[in-house]
Amino acid sequence: MNDELLIKFLLKETSEKENAEVQDWISADGENEKYFKQLEQIWNESAGLATQSSVNEELAWQKFKTRVAQKEENIQSVQLKAKRSNGNFKWLSIAATFFIVAGVWLVYSLLGNAYTEVSSKALVVNKVLPDGSQLVLNKNTTLSYANDFKQNRKVLLLKGEVFFDVAHDRKHPFTIAMDQVNVMVVGTSFNIKRNTDHIEIIVESGVVKVKRNNSEISLIKGERVMISADSQAQLVKRANEDELYNYYRTQLFVARNTPLYRLVNILNEAYGVQIVPADDVKALRIYTTLPFNNLDKNLNNICEALDLQMERNQNQILLSKKRK
Rank of each mutant, 00 (worst) to 15 (best):
G87A: 14
G87S: 12
N88T: 07
K90R: 11
L92N: 13
S93P: 05
A95G: 14
A96R: 10
A96L: 15
T97M: 11
F98D: 06
F99C: 08
F99W: 13
V101L: 11
V107K: 14
Y108C: 00
Y108G: 02
L110P: 00
A114Q: 14
Y115V: 04
S120T: 08
K121N: 11
A122I: 06
P130Y: 05
G132D: 06
G132Y: 02
V136K: 15
N140L: 10
T141C: 05
T141G: 05
T141K: 06
T141I: 04
T142F: 01
Y145I: 08
F149W: 04
F149S: 03
F149M: 04
L156N: 10
K159W: 07
G160C: 06
V162G: 02
F163Y: 10
F163P: 00
F164W: 02
D165H: 06
D165N: 15
P173Y: 00
F174Q: 03
V181L: 12
V181T: 15
N182C: 01
V185E: 09
T188A: 04
S189I: 03
N191G: 06
K193S: 15
R194P: 01
N195G: 06
D197A: 10
H198C: 02
H198K: 14
I202N: 12
I202L: 10
V203D: 08
V203A: 11
V207D: 07
V207W: 04
V208H: 05
K211P: 00
N213C: 02
S215G: 02
S215T: 08
E216Q: 11
S218T: 11
L219E: 09
L219Y: 04
K221I: 00
E223A: 03
S228M: 10
A229H: 07
A229K: 14
A233Q: 13
Q234D: 15
Q234I: 04
Q234S: 11
